[in-house]
């Protein structure tokens, strides 16, 4: 399922004195099965961008195509779009409302008008895939720990079996281990189901390990785009807009600049360690 942004501009409060552009002439193609990291700091337009992908917001100018169809076209079913493009908002646990975990996860499939059997099957499957055990499915979602709540909320979107899964800062507020667990979970979902995943984050280090392609937004525009190594090669450009590259990337770039024979584009600790250890051993 591909998503195409064709000259999309979005202005909040268009036509009033308070008008402010949140997206300026965005052109993007998101291919089937990609794992994308969308990076930018608060107010860069990344939240506005993802809300265009499932029709929660509509472009002021330009067109968004999903599977070749204009999602603002006449007779286009936004409801069906939203089950195909699943969007997990920031702090998704704040939207839980049902009396039990299972019922909450069933909310999405129920809205799709599926049979009761299918609804339950999907809910169970989704809960299993996020690692919520059978012992918790009848518990009240409000009694769970923070990390568990977040998994349940993600399951609530997964149960709709979307072809595209968008997650807005899924690790916000989690501790380091919780962060790694959620990111690992997302990677597993991507690998096992092959769906497109768009991970919104403001941490380069978080996405470096996981994604195929990074899209960097700043001031309502896409400023950089490409595989992590290509994007991180622009250390200084990224830092000038207040985003930091992973520390290990900074180190490899600096050492390279100092004239050491190392690759300047290591993006994970393992890569950098291999590279630096090899250099040391060579001199030994």
């Amino acid at each position: 399922m591909s998503i195409i942004f064709d000259h999309v501009t979005h202005k909040y409060e268009a036509g009033t004195t308070m008008e402010k552009p949140a997206l300026k002439d965005i052109n993007l193609v998101i291919n089937d099965g990609e794992f994308i990291g969308l990076i930018g700091h608060t107010g860069s337009g990344k939240s506005t961008l993802i809300q265009h992908m499932n029709g929660l917001l509509k472009p002021t100018e330009g067109t968004v195509y999903v599977d070749g169809e204009d999602i603002c076209g006449k007779g286009y079913s936004l409801k069906s779009l939203r089950s195909r493009v699943g969007l997990v908002f920031q702090y998704p646990e704040h939207q839980l409302f049902e009396s039990s975990v299972l019922l909450d996860v069933e909310f999405g499939p129920k809205n799709m008008g599926l049979t009761q059997l299918e609804i339950q099957y999907r809910a169970f499957e989704a809960l299993k895939s996020v690692g919520i055990g059978d012992d918790l499915i009848d518990a009240s979602p409000f009694e769970l720990s923070g990390g568990q709540k977040r998994r349940v909320a993600i399951a609530g979107v997964l149960a709709m079996k979307p072809k595209v899964l968008i997650l807005d800062e899924p690790t916000a507020g989690l501790d380091p281990a919780g962060r790694d667990e959620i990111l690992g979970l997302i990677r597993r979902i991507h690998e096992e189901s092959g769906i497109t995943v768009i991970l919104v984050s403001h941490s380069m280090e978080d996405v470096a390990n996981y994604v195929d392609r990074i899209i960097v937004m700043n001031d309502a525009k896409v400023v950089l785009e490409g595989p992590p190594k290509t994007v991180f090669a622009n250390c200084d450009a990224l830092e000038s807009i207040g985003l930091s590259v992973p520390q290990v990337t900074r180190i490899s770039a600096d050492l390279k600049n100092l004239g050491l024979p190392v690759r300047p584009d290591s993006i994970t600790i393992e890569e950098a360690a291999d590279e630096l250890a090899a250099l040391y051993k060579r001199l030994h």
């Binding site: 929660l56 939203r82 909310f107 979107v157």
Partner: peptide, 13 residues
């Protein structure tokens, strides 16, 4: 507004 959008994203109408 945020909660409404989140539930709409889950197909609420």
């Amino acid at each position: 507004d945020k909660i409404m959008k989140a539930q709409q994203a889950r197909g609420a109408d």
